[in-house]
Nucleic acid binder design. Structure first.
Lengths: 234, 234
DNA sequence: TTGGATTTGTGCGTATGTATA
DNA sequence: CTATACATACGCACAAATCCA
């Protein structure tokens, strides 16, 4: 693995294991450079990772500080984690309502930025957290990029499959968040009333090479859905 | 201004003015380094700015590409813009319902990370876009950091005042997003029905020196509120 | 209040690694 | 397999913000 990630991982572990529990400020860049035997740019890359994760913040001329932990049980918008990863300290499972192969029509081809007629997988899943229905996912995958997708995969983690089995590198995602009133069928799935509100996210997910492989619309139970984002001023 | 920002600004202007309209790919890093007469690290910092703004994306071994524009009329979660800045191509105005100085109680002091009893400003505003009620803001400012706040400022732009008049540097913000049903008073302000849904954001805003100066709860009209975020995989 | 010391930010240049074409 | 192009890593100098005597 790249050096700056090793440093970031190690630093994070030291922080979470209380190495700096009595101080808000980390050692200076120069001290950390010596401690980890890396160059200035490598150390700064490592710190950048933890700043983006809301673990640390920097103050020019002053130092690098440890942040208070963010509110727990929130979905982090800035990062791309699978459902499993997001709730890894909770009991979660998924029910696959439908998984089929179709050809992209005009709307799907637009969302997946591919040709009309491209073979795609459609997946409809319900996600449960602690046995409560948490969200309903309507998801499309470009079959030219994801050659195979089965129910046995969709019941576990599609993202884990893509990254570890297919060895593809997920790059970035556009996420749109809005509020909609529930349809009859979605309200049934979520055990809510029709026309109750829902938090809706619509995501376009890109591989590191810039190709769109996935588009998802996720209907969240409004009682549980809470999102977190770190905003930076630049 | 710092060189990498000048390069980022210039590059963005060239992109938006169609210099690269016939190509998806920018010139190579090396070419851009020569074109702008800067070092590699300066150029990379400039590109980073535009990547964070969802203008560009990079593919190792391939090139730097221009992204399709994001969906318009969305609020960007990743960045800290004032209301005015976010809707700068729209007609917007604000109505100040209340502006008063109070002492921080337990809850406010927790949210502003200050002592109980600290003098704070409380501001309650309604924001209009194209004369439609868009959101209701309940906001607290630490008076030890923002020594003065008046109605004449709150009717325009508090953020503009803080950055340009007080010359303070806004650093980062934690944002939480959830859905709540409207209270009677909020539904009246938004011209909606009581118990209609609303998109709620709760923000803690930090100066560059890490001090909390503002905490806001904003109730958005669910019909108009649409948020955008760029997620990165790291 | 000031000014020097400390600490992070920016900028330069180069070499090598890694993914893409 | 080779060439291309971005990613990582090293090290140094100076700028800018903060801190403190």
């Amino acid at each position: 693995m790249r050096k700056y990630r090793l440093v970031a991982d190690q630093l994070l572990e030291e922080i979470t294991h209380g190495k700096y529990k009595n101080e808000l400020r980390l050692p200076t860049e120069e001290d950390l450079i010596v401690a980890y035997s890396v160059s200035k740019s490598t150390l700064r890359n490592a710190i950048d990772v933890l700043v983006d994760k809301s673990i640390l913040y920097r103050v020019q001329g002053s130092g690098i500080y440890i942040r208070k932990p963010i509110y727990p049980d929130t979905i982090t918008i800035n990062s791309i984690k699978g459902f499993k990863e997001e709730f890894k300290n909770k009991k979660i499972h998924s029910k696959v309502i439908k998984l089929e192969q179709v050809e992209a029509d005009a709307e799907i081809s637009f969302k997946l930025q591919c040709e009309i007629g491209t073979p795609v997988y459609f997946v409809n899943r319900i996600r449960y957290v602690e046995n409560e229905p948490f969200s309903i996912e309507y998801s499309y995958f470009n079959k030219n990029i994801i050659p195979y997708l089965g129910k046995e995969i969709a019941e576990k983690s599609i993202y884990n499959y893509i990254e570890n089995d297919l060895n593809l590198s997920i790059g970035f995602a556009d996420k749109y968040i809005s509020v909609e009133k529930l349809s009859k069928i979605d309200s049934d799935h979520l055990q809510l009333n029709e026309s109750d509100p829902s938090m809706v996210t619509e995501e376009t997910v890109f591989l590191s090479n810039g190709k769109v492989f996935n588009h998802s619309k996720v209907i969240h139970n409004y009682k549980y859905a809470k999102f977190f984002a770190l905003a930076k001023n630049r």
